[in-house]
């Protein structure tokens, strides 16, 4: 019985989170990530570098005893590196129980985008596109919606290419 309740409340959580996106910016572009993946947003922390990692993996941080890897999303999308400042944020997301922190220029807001407002991304464009699962239109603004799963899984393919 308690199980059922748990399932119910989980459903509710899913419901209230559906269509909600946390938006952040990289340069002039706005990106959105489904809120259900986001566990928290923190300011910049002292980073411990891990040797021999690709450039976009900045290292690891200690988040209340948990070791979280950090990915610089700018570098991931092959954009030029920008010095971190007091607006730089770490968006901690949890995808299939793998936690990871995304370093972004700044976080803006949480917005709702209904399915009708989302269009598929144009096929051949720039590098970052393969991580985009759709484009959300909010008023006059355009938000690039991230495919969080791809951010992580694409790695293996790249690794193979490197070898």
């Amino acid at each position: 019985m308690s199980e059922n309740e748990a399932v119910d409340s989980e459903d509710q959580v899913e419901d209230t989170q559906k269509g909600k996106f946390l938006t952040f910016c990289l340069g002039n572009e706005f990106y959105g990530i489904e809120i259900k993946y986001v566990t928290e947003i923190i300011g910049l922390q002292p980073i411990t570098e891990i040797p021999e990692m690709p450039e976009y993996i900045k290292g690891i941080i200690n988040l209340r005893g948990k070791i979280i890897p950090l990915m610089d999303v700018r570098l991931r999308f092959r954009k030029p590196f920008r010095e971190y400042n007091d607006r730089t944020c770490i968006v901690v997301i949890d995808i299939r129980e793998i936690p990871i922190g995304l370093i972004v220029d700044s976080v803006s807001e949480v917005i709702s985008i209904s399915d009708e407002e989302i269009v598929s991304p144009p096929s051949l464009n720039k590098e970052g596109n393969k991580y985009i699962r759709g484009i959300g239109k909010v008023g006059n603004d355009v938000k690039l919606l991230l495919d969080s799963g791809k951010l992580l899984t694409d790695l293996e393919i790249e690794n193979l290419e490197n070898i």
């Binding site: 891990i50 040797p51 021999e52 990692m53 690709p54 690891i60 070791i67 793998i98 936690p99 992580l152």
Partner: peptide
């Protein structure tokens, strides 16, 4: 142990893990 994401990316020789 180092985060799974790091370990999947590359096995760094000479590193056994980390500690706080």
């Amino acid at each position: 142990s180092l985060p799974a994401y790091i370990k999947h990316t590359k096995k760094v020789t000479g590193l056994a893990g980390c500690t706080l």
